[in-house]
């Protein structure tokens, strides 16, 4: 059956190539269809070609995509693709040897490490940016300017399920406004991180809230109800600052508003988190992989700023560069 299909697909390729080259005749950006999958090993030379496959966290994807986009101006023939399977889904493919770089919004877990080892996939961890998970409330919310982590836990812990339904139950000083919660979907690294930091256990959360992988849903939900509360990445808040209010977080040392500076100097605890990329050892040996990673690491602050991420502070950036240098010499 497979050989039949392979023959069929060969015929199919020919047919489609003809059809497509006719269809795309007007645009000239299509590369010639005949040259097949380009091999990577055109050593040295100014222009490299080949492919680098990144996949993983949808939080980190805009950063890697921005890096790929800037990089295309330098090396237009290296095809960098970015997928968004989620942090967990990304590692699953990465450890199966199917991708070259895994984007992650949390560090790799032990069982994922084991899966990588089982398949002989070696990797290293690079911290490329910082995110500040931002808790947002409605514009008309006049009472919750600052919330303690204990109050957040009271709202989100599994025990709150069905019981904590108004703001007054969270704190007697708050009005008797219904509490409407919006949060990240359970597949995301954002959910893992938030539940870990606030509820004390990864994945433990009340169930009766509106989960969504699409942060626009949270924006609409919170901006549409006076007692609404939700959380997502800082970038998303900045884009929607006219519709929502960010809450200051008090983890014991006073109220701190989410901001670039607070996330960089480490005072925005516990919701500032590092974002990672995991390049495989195999890709750091290929010229196209080295070219892309050199560019990514070398221009990290420009890329992060442009993609509206919180750039690393100088110390972290120095660490990234030395980690990367070590990785290259090690290979």
């Amino acid at each position: 059956m497979t050989s039949g299909q392979r023959r069929l697909s060969a015929a199919a390729t020919a047919a489609i190539v003809v059809a497509l080259s006719a269809a795309c005749g007007g645009t000239n950006t299509t590369p010639p269809a005949g040259d097949g999958t380009a091999t990577a090993s055109q050593a040295a030379g100014a222009e490299l070609s080949g492919q680098v496959k990144a996949d993983g966290s949808s939080t980190v994807a805009p950063l890697t995509s921005a890096a790929a986009e800037f990089f295309a101006e330098e090396q237009p023939k290296i095809n960098v693709t970015v997928g968004t399977s989620g942090t967990g889904g990304g590692f699953e493919k990465f450890c199966n040897g199917e991708t070259d770089i895994s984007d992650a919004s949390r560090p790799i877990k032990d069982e994922e490490k084991a899966a990588c080892e089982a398949k002989g996939v070696k990797f290293s961890e690079l911290t490329v940016a910082t995110d500040a998970l931002t808790v947002v409330v409605n514009k008309d919310n006049t009472w919750a300017k600052c919330l303690t982590t204990a109050q957040l836990k009271k709202m989100w812990e599994p025990a709150a399920d069905g019981k904590i339904t108004t703001w007054k139950q969270v704190d007697a000083k708050f009005p008797d406004e219904p509490l409407k919660l919006f949060g990240a979907g359970t597949d995301s690294g954002t959910f893992d991180y938030f539940t870990d930091e606030i509820n004390g256990e990864e994945g433990a959360s009340r169930k009766d809230y509106s989960p969504s992988e699409d942060d626009n849903v949270t924006v609409q939900g919170v901006s549409g109800s006076k007692g609404g509360l939700g959380y997502f990445g800082f970038t998303y808040f900045e884009e929607n600052a006219d519709k929502l209010k960010a809450v200051e977080i008090d983890s014991g040392d006073g109220c701190v508003a989410p901001s670039v500076a607070a996330a960089q100097d480490g005072t925005y605890t516990p919701l500032a988190r590092p974002l990672f990329i995991y390049p495989s050892a195999a890709i750091t040996k290929k010229p196209e992989g080295v070219a892309f990673l050199d560019f990514y690491v070398g221009n990290i602050s420009k890329i992060a700023t442009d993609a509206k991420f919180i750039p690393l502070n100088p110390e972290q950036e120095a660490k990234l560069k030395s980690d990367y240098a070590a990785l290259k010499t090690q290979g």
């Binding site: 697909s9 795309c24 299509t30 590369p31 010639p32 960098v80 693709t81 970015v82 997928g83």
Partner: peptide, 11 residues
Amino acid sequence: VSFIRFNPDGV
């Protein structure tokens, strides 16, 4: 993938 700047050049 959700980000690719190349057209497919084969099956």
